[in-house]
Computed example of a mutant assay.
Amino acid sequence: MRLVRHPVLCNYYVTYRCNAKCSFCDIWEKPSPYITLADVEQNLRDLKRLGVSVVDFTGGEPLLHRQIHEFVGLAHDMGFITTLTTNCLLYPKYAERLRGKVDMLHFSLDSSEKEVHDKGRGVACFDFVLESIRVARELGERPDVLFTVFRENLKDLERVYDEITRPNKLVLILNPAFEYNAVAAGEQLTAEELDYLSAFGKRPGVYLNEAFIQLRRDGGNHVAAPVCRAASTTLVISPSNELVLPCYHLGEQKFPIEGGLHTLYNSAEVQRLAALEGRLPQCEGCTINCYMQPSFAVETSKYFWQALPSTLKYNWEKSTWKRMLTR
């Protein structure tokens, strides 16, 4: 049963440019403009009208945009839950300007060992993550550590948890790696490794959407009976101010917004393409977390009930439920 029929999340790409070269991502290879404040102001008004509650300012590396603090501040003041993920190379520079404006601030860290993390990211950023944690805590911020899980780094979870997140009173978010297009994420986790990850996710201070684990056990999305609701739950806005459908990773079609996001989203052409969510040939086997998370939240299914405990746990620890009540 569908519980929510309007979009709940916007993935707002401020630029595709990045100062890292992660082995599991190809976005840094793309040329890209930067979004403008005028477009952000208009689009946020339309997102509010469409019922969106969470705006994720993403990239590329979002802190490459010199006005990022203005964007998150504007969205935060309008009552949106704001999220931002960074590799931390620029966070110490922007920390003071971002202070109090990001509800869910994620620092990417994939290993307890500097050499391993930096190799995977293609740039020396491990020390910047540790420095960013120090700076954020001094400012009274509560960032999360976002750990992208591969078979190769599963063994590092214990040390990251024991040596970094627990001593600093941070939430450790487990993000199982996913494949898309020609970007490979290594060998898939085995059933035993999924069991280990599931058990780890039940520890204090750890967030893991259990439905992600179940989806992998089930072989991902299936076009004959799709669980993906990417296009109807999530609006993707490109740095060129386009609405991208059905999701960023497929990017089948891009529609110029031109100041009319609300009208565009409700147009027959966009809704026709949105209706194909999870049903395109490329959607078979998909496990992309950033679209499955909202998909699981809007209709009752086994995935909804499996996702619910961890979602409640995270929102309680981060106190974002208070922001939801005051929207």
Score class of each variant (00 low, 15 high):
260 G>H: 14
279 R>F: 11
282 Q>P: 00
287 T>R: 11
224 A>T: 10
251 G>L: 09
289 N>S: 14
238 S>E: 04
294 P>C: 11
247 C>M: 09
244 V>F: 04
282 Q>E: 14
277 E>Y: 02
254 K>E: 13
264 L>A: 06
232 S>Y: 01
295 S>M: 03
282 Q>R: 13
284 E>L: 05
223 V>A: 14
247 C>F: 01
258 E>V: 12
248 Y>R: 10
285 G>Y: 08
227 V>R: 03
282 Q>K: 12
261 L>F: 03
273 L>V: 13
237 I>M: 05
290 C>Y: 01
257 I>N: 08
225 A>D: 14
230 A>F: 07
223 V>C: 07
228 C>R: 03
220 G>Y: 00
258 E>R: 15
274 A>C: 14
272 R>S: 14
226 P>R: 02
276 L>Y: 04
247 C>V: 06
270 V>K: 03
274 A>G: 15
257 I>G: 08
250 L>E: 10
257 I>R: 07
256 P>E: 09
227 V>L: 14
260 G>A: 15
292 M>Q: 13
243 L>Q: 03
291 Y>C: 07
224 A>P: 00
245 L>K: 05
220 G>L: 11
258 E>P: 01
295 S>H: 04
234 T>N: 07
237 I>W: 01
239 P>Y: 04
293 Q>I: 11
241 N>I: 09
246 P>T: 11
239 P>E: 10
279 R>W: 01
280 L>E: 10
229 R>V: 03
266 N>H: 15
275 A>I: 01
251 G>V: 03
294 P>V: 07
249 H>F: 15
244 V>Q: 02
247 C>D: 09
230 A>K: 01
282 Q>N: 10
281 P>Y: 09
259 G>K: 04
262 H>E: 15
274 A>F: 05
225 A>W: 00
291 Y>E: 04
289 N>V: 10
240 S>M: 13
240 S>I: 08
284 E>D: 15
263 T>L: 14
291 Y>M: 11
224 A>L: 05
227 V>W: 12
244 V>N: 04
239 P>M: 10
262 H>I: 01
269 E>A: 15
293 Q>G: 03
295 S>G: 08
289 N>W: 00
257 I>K: 02
286 C>I: 04
241 N>H: 15
246 P>I: 10
228 C>D: 05
293 Q>V: 13
277 E>H: 08
225 A>Y: 06
281 P>V: 07
244 V>G: 01
291 Y>V: 13
246 P>Q: 06
289 N>Q: 11
227 V>G: 04
221 N>S: 06
268 A>M: 10
219 G>A: 11
230 A>G: 09
278 G>F: 02
